[in-house]
Structure formats: structure tokens, C-alpha cells
């Protein structure tokens, strides 16, 4: 749905985006992360064709993005970081205007559905100048979905919203994704990205550092997996035999609770369960203590670690 090939943008010699290679597949909810000034918005502007790249290419919906390719743009919906409206218009007039621009059939019925979905039905005749930031953000969502786009590009979509509205928008994004829409989300709210996204890309100083599923990124950042296990009986007797297992790097035993540090080459949970069963223990609970996306993000961006294979991501 989106592919960038060696995408680069220079401003007066400064590389805001440096040889960026992204690939968003159909049906993905793709998180695009990076600290302030990492080049996220510049990348999005290039993807939307609003600023020309210094070099490299953008493919949108399978077509190379050329200047003013409006037929491709008709198939995408965008919610930007800042909301810009004609303040003298009401929500209904605003959406009708965009409905006419995008030639939306049955536009008034579609507007009704969307205003209901974003919780603005009762404010449809209010001037947009009187809308709060949260209401503006929701209206921008309604505008982005108005023409039933195949691809949604969201730049900080829940930045100005209260928790209830965040849930409303999150549900809406998930619902749209279930209907087959591909979603590209750039956000600072890592908890939101973690809940929503299947795949993420992390950029820093214009360079792509990681692009993978969330689980893979976390796994690749750590050389140990921590397992917390609750057993049916006291596990003190296991000490000697556990240390002999080749995939165990360390462990601690406390009564019937066991914490095991496993190697990361592959998933050893089955091997561990079998071992414990053979030793006469029943596993009551087994939990993986995971690195959060926030921890992964901070580790990657602060230490500028690249999780890309050579030749991948940044050429």
C-alpha cells in the first residue's frame, strides 16, 4: 500500500530523511515512531506528495507517486497532526464541501453515519470556530473517512483527545481496519501504538532503525527472555537439573515460583514445559515478562541501534 525507496529529503544540506525504505502491506495497522525531529512529518508530507523528495521514490497503492496524481489521492484519507478548518463553516457544511470534492455518493447519509461514529451528531450545526481541539480532531477523522478510502494516514491521531475520545477513535481505527482498510499511524503515544499496531517502524535523525512486528523488535533487543512460572509444588529440587538445560541462562527459585532466563534464538516454552512435566511438576501459570514498546523505543532511539539487516531499510 505504501512503499518508499531510498527516500531522502535535504533542507539546506541537512538530511531530514535519509534513504528511507518503508513497506506497508495491505491490511496492516502500521506504526511509524520516532522522537521529535526524527523526520516523521517530513516523511508523511513526501508520501502525500506535498513536498518533493530530494531523491528516492514513493509508491502509493501500487503506483509511483507523481506530482498532482489526484486519482491516487482520492483513495487515501489523512488526519494531520494539527487541524485546519474553515472556521466560518459548520461541521455539516464542512463535510458536505469535502463530500462534493471527493464526489461521495449519498453524502448526507454518509455524514450522518460518521458524525454519529465520532460523537459529533449533536454539534453538526455548530461553527467550527467554536469547536474544541478534541472535537476538531474527531471531525478531521470524519473527513478522512468520508470518501471510504483504502488507506488511512494518521499523524498523531489522538494527540488532543481525552481518554474516552481516545477509546472512541481507537475503536474506530480497529473497526476500519477490520473492514480491510490499511492504516499508517505516526504517534508519540507509544501505549496507543502498542495497542493498535501490528507492525512498527522506528526512525531517528531521518534514518530507519527498525521495521518489524512488535514482538520481533522486542525480542531482537534483548538476549534473554524472562519467564515467570508458578508450579504445583516446591521447586527447590529443580536447581541442579535446570542449570544443565542448554537454553537456560539463569534462574531463581522461591517456593513454588520459578523465574527462568531463557536464550532468545527460538521459543523454548514448550521445551521448558516438557522438562518440568517430566520432573513431575505441573505448570499452573507461565508468563513472559516482556519489554514494553516504550522500553524498546527508548533503547533503540537513545542508543541509535539499528535492527535492520545490512542493506535493508537504509541503503
Amino acid at each position: 500500500m505504501i512503499q518508499t525507496v531510498n527516500l531522502t529529503k535535504e533542507f539546506n544540506g541537512f538530511k531530514a530523511v535519509d534513504n528511507l525504505n518503508l513497506r506497508v502491506e495491505k491490511g496492516d495497522i502500521y506504526g511509524f515512531l520516532g522522537p521529535n525531529g526524527a523526520g516523521k512529518t517530513t516523511t508523511i508530507m513526501m508520501i502525500l506528495g506535498l513536498i518533493p523528495p530530494t531523491s528516492g521514490k514513493v509508491f502509493l497503492l501500487g503506483e509511483e507517486l507523481k506530482p498532482n496524481n489526484v486519482e491516487v489521492k482520492r483513495r487515501i484519507g489523512v488526519v494531520s497532526e494539527n487541524q485546519y478548518f474553515y472556521k466560518e463553516m459548520t461541521a455539516e457544511e464542512y463535510l458536505t464541501f469535502f463530500g462534493e470534492l471527493y464526489e461521495v455518493p449519498n453524502v448526507h447519509r454518509r455524514i450522518d453515519e460518521l458524525l454519529e461514529a465520532v460523537g459529533l451528531r449533536n454539534d453538526r450545526n455548530k461553527k467550527l470556530g467554536a469547536y474544541s481541539k478534541g472535537m476538531q480532531q474527531k471531525l478531521a477523522f470524519a473527513r478522512a473517512l468520508l470518501h471510504d478510502p483504502e488507506l488511512l494516514i494518521l499523524d498523531e491521531p489522538v494527540a488532543n483527545l481525552d481518554p474516552t475520545s481516545i477509546k472512541q477513535i481507537r475503536d474506530l481505527i480497529e473497526e476500519e481496519n477490520r473492514r480491510g482498510r490499511t492504516v499508517f499511524v505516526s504517534s508519540h503515544l507509544l501505549s496507543e501504538v502498542e495497542r493498535l499496531c501490528k507492525k512498527v517502524a522506528i526512525i531517528n535523525r531521518g534514518k530507519l532503525l527498525a521495521e518489524d512486528t512488535m514482538d520481533n523488535i522486542k525480542r531482537r533487543l534483548t538476549d534473554t527472555i524472562h519467564m515467570e512460572i508458578e508450579l504445583s509444588a516446591n521447586a527447590e529440587s529443580l536447581s541442579t537439573s535446570l542449570s544443565e538445560l542448554p537454553f537456560v541462562k539463569g534462574f531463581t527459585v522461591e517456593g513454588n515460583r520459578l523465574e527462568v532466563h531463557l536464550k532468545t534464538e527460538r521459543d523454548y516454552r514448550l521445551d521448558l514445559s516438557r522438562f518440568l512435566y517430566e520432573k513431575g511438576f505441573l505448570v499452573l501459570t507461565m508468563k513472559t515478562k516482556e519489554m514494553s514498546l516504550e522500553e524498546a523505543f527508548i533503547t533503540i532511539t537513545q542508543q541509535n541501534i539499528s535492527l535492520l539487516a545490512q542493506g535493508e531499510g537504509n541503503a
Binding site: 506535498l50 489526484v70 482520492r74 489523512v78 485546519y84 478548518f85 474553515y86 469535502f98 470534492l101
Partner: peptide, 16 residues
């Protein structure tokens, strides 16, 4: 200045 131009250009509007 108001940013409304950017929103128009997300869609089917061209400079022409």
C-alpha cells in the same frame, strides 16, 4: 497561513 490549503491538497485538489 491557516493550513486549509494543506488539507485540500491531501485530496483531489491540484495547484491548477
Amino acid at each position: 497561513e491557516q493550513g486549509t490549503l494543506e488539507v485540500l491538497f491531501y485530496g483531489p485538489v491540484t495547484p491548477g
